[in-house]
Write a protein that binds this DNA or RNA. Sequence first.
DNA 1: TCTTTATTACCGGTTATTTAGAAATAATAT
DNA 2: ATATTATTTCTAAATAACCGGTAATAAAGA
Lengths: 106, 106
Amino acid sequence: MEHEKVAMQLKVLGNPTRLAVFRQLVRFGPEGAPVGRVQSALKLAGSTLTNHLQKLVAAGLAHQERKGTELICTADFTAMRAMIDYLEEQCCADMCDTPTRDTSAT
Amino acid sequence: MEHEKVAMQLKVLGNPTRLAVFRQLVRFGPEGAPVGRVQSALKLAGSTLTNHLQKLVAAGLAHQERKGTELICTADFTAMRAMIDYLEEQCCADMCDTPTRDTSAT
DNA sequence: TCTTTATTACCGGTTATTTAGAAATAATAT
DNA sequence: ATATTATTTCTAAATAACCGGTAATAAAGA
């Protein structure tokens, strides 16, 4: 995972509204949910939500798939895992591991 | 850890230059390093670096302490740990744990 | 005091982001 | 075709971010 990509993902999640949208997608789980359901859960203007969802998709943090009239949105858990792993490796460097973890390696 | 705070930290780390600054601080370890050393490592205009460092400090991700002429900067590993933990809990919700990790819990 | 090194404050130009209303498009059923 | 529901595009205005030059301040030594 490259620096630039992670920076973009962090920036995208760095907007409070967008972070809430992503959290909502996570709560919907692997099945996802249509845009309208995200909208009613968070009470956002449609155009605003579309905007945020597009940025999440562009950052690779979410996906969308048409299903008839509705557009199903899902969080990309693999991408999220990779992003967190990058943070652990590049921005923690074993200095901020959880206390319970073994740090005996050279 | 609250939503707003994490969003701010993510936004702050979402700038590629600033992410590089933070990574550099991490590499310097708990001892930290003076501003000038960060600057020569990354080749940034002084005023630009100051700006980025201040934002990292404001977000609680770094600290600064005067030592004579120099200003020692250190990454806050505890804050970083807390931020990552938030992401794991609120934005993964056990859906994106590492494959090697036990997920047998109900 | 004067100088040197280290760092910041201030400023301005440029670009990006956020927000949402209104009009447009997509999919489907009648 | 028309209506209905779902979602987006277009647009615009307010706000915020980014970068770095230059002048100012902090610390310490000669």
